[in-house]
Design a binder for these strands. Sequence first.
RNA 1: GCCCCUGUAGCGCAAUGGAUAGCGCACUAGCCUCCGGAGCUAGUGGUACAGGUUCGACUCCUGUCAGGGGCACCA
Length: 545
Amino acid sequence: MTKDIQEELSDLVACCLAQLGWLENYPEKISLELPTDNRFGDFTTNISLKLSKLLKRPPQAIAAELVFCLQREISKTSLQKIVTQVKVEGVGFVNFYLKENYFYDKLKVIIAQGKAALRSTNGAGRKVLIEFVSANPTGSLSVAHARQAAVGDCLANILAFIGFDVQREYYLNDEGNQINILGGSVDLRLKELQGQKIEFPENYYQGDYIYDIAREADKQKIKDTSLGDFAADYILRIIKQELIDFGVNFDCWYSQKQLAKSGKIEQAFSRLKEKGFLYEQDGALWFKSTSFGDDKDRVIIKSDGSQTYLAPDIAYHEDKFNRGFSWLINLWGPDHHGYINRIKAAIEAFGHKPDELSVIIVQLATIFRNGQPVQMSTRRGQYITLREVLDEVGADAARFFFLMRRTSSHLDFDLEVAKKQSAENPVFYVQYAYARICSILRSSAIEIKNDLDLSVLKEKEELSLIKKLLEFDTILNICRATCDPYMLTVYLQELSESFHKFYDLHRVLDQGEVLTCARLALIKGVKIVLSCGLELLGITQPEKM
RNA sequence: GCCCCUGUAGCGCAAUGGAUAGCGCACUAGCCUCCGGAGCUAGUGGUACAGGUUCGACUCCUGUCAGGGGCACCA
C-alpha cells in the first residue's frame, strides 16, 4: 500500500548517493523503513550510519549532505506535494515527513476499494507448494498437528494474498511399517472382540479407537492383510473432517503408495546414481549427503532390501519441483530438525538451490488448564487431540492461540484463557474491536459520501490509527520473509488497541456531518483491515458478540 | 555425548540490528445521564551471567548457568 512512495523515495536516495559518488560504497539494497515511533517521521533510513565507516566520516555529516541533495531532488519532482520535510535526526538517521493529505488519500483508497486496496502482487505469481500436517493416518490429529495446520494454512493465506500461486499439500504416509502395525493392532483387537486371548505389543496402537475400527472391519468382513489399508482409510476420513472443522482445506493429498507405484523413486535413484551420489556399503545403499554439508551419509535402502523413509521423500521432493513449483515450504515437527540437511542435500543433488526449500520447524504446544500442564501419555494413546481443543474453545480461539507465538518457539496454550472474554484473551480483544465498529456503523444514519473531507481528522489518535492501517502490507511482507504468520496476530492486537484508544477519546456519532462522516470513514477503514487480517488468520469476523 | 527451541517487570508475553524496550494479568488511583466498560487513562516494576562483533545488541557470535524438546539401517 505504501509501497509506491516508499519505492520512489528509496530510488531517490539511490540517485542522490550516485550523485555524491557514494553508491558504489553501498552494496546493500537501499530501502526505507518504517520508524519505530511517529516522532521520527513517516519513513527513515539508516544509510548514513552504514556509510560512516566506509567513508571514514561522521554519520551526521554524511546525512546532512544527503539531506541537502534529497531536498533539491524532491523539489524537482511531484514528491514535493507529499513530502514536507527531510531531516537528520538522532545519531544520523535521515527521516522523511509526509503531508497528512497523503494519508487521507490512502485511507480513501481503502474505503473505495476495500480489501482489493490491501492486496499486493509481490509474489508475482510464483508457484509455491506448502506441505504441512502430513500426519500418518494412524490416529486423530494431536495438538502438535493442530499448530502446524494453523500455521501452514495461515501462511498459505498470506502468500496467496500477496500474489503467490499457492498450493496446500498433505503428504499421506499410506503404506509401510506404521500402516502394517496399524493393521496388526486392528487384527488383534478383532480377535480380542471375538473372545480370543491376545498379547498386545507395546509398540502397537493402544487407543480405544482401534476397537471401533475393529468392529467396523468385522461388520464389513475385512480381515488379515487388508486391515491396514482399511484402518488407514477409516482414520483418514476422521482426519479430513477434523481439518475441515478447523477450517483447513488441502488442495492435494499426495499418496506415498501412489508415489511408490509410479516408479518415480527408482527414477530418482538412477538419476542420483548417474550423478555419483549413491554407493553401496555393508549391504545397504547410501546417499552421499555429506557432499552437501550433512554430517553423515544416509541409508536409503537397508541391508534387508527395504527402503528407509528418506527414499520416497527424496523422490517426493524432486517431484514437487517437477510439478512446476519453484519454492517449497515444509512445516515439520521438532523431531524432524535433523532431517533438514538430508532433504536439502537431496534437492541440491538434483541441481536445485538450497533456498528453494524452506523448512519451518513448528515447535510443540503444551496444553495448560488453569496454569497447570495437562498430562498426556502417547504410550497409552492418550494425547490431547485437535478435536478436544476444538470442542472446548472453538476454532477461532484455537487458531489464534496456535499462531500467537513465533512458530519456532514453544507455545503454552491455556484452555481457560482461550475461553475468557477479556483483554487477557487476544482473540476476543480483536474481535471486540471489530464488533464495536460494526455496532457504530449500524447506529449511524449518515452515509459516507464520495466527496469525503478527511482533513478534519487532526487528532493524534486519528492520524496514528490511519498510519497503523497502512502498516498492513509491511507486516504481510515480514510474514513472508520470516515464513511465519505470527506477526500478523501481533499487528491485529496493536491495531485493535489503537482503535480502542481512539474510541475512548473521540466520539464518532453526532459530531456534525463533516466530522462524523470523516470518523465513520476512519473506522470503516479499520473494519476493512481487521476483517482482512482475521480472514487471513482463518478467524471469523463477528458483527455482534 | 550431539542437535534444536527458550531465558525480558511477581506471572504470561512483544519489540523486520536502530532512536526513550512495549502490552496484558496482578496491585494502586481514576473514567459509563455519552456510539458496546468484553473498553480506556495514570502509577509501580525488567533484557539470566561473562566476553565478543557493530557507529549502535533484547536481537548476531562464543562460553557459562537454567528450563523444554529431539537423536535410529523408525516413520
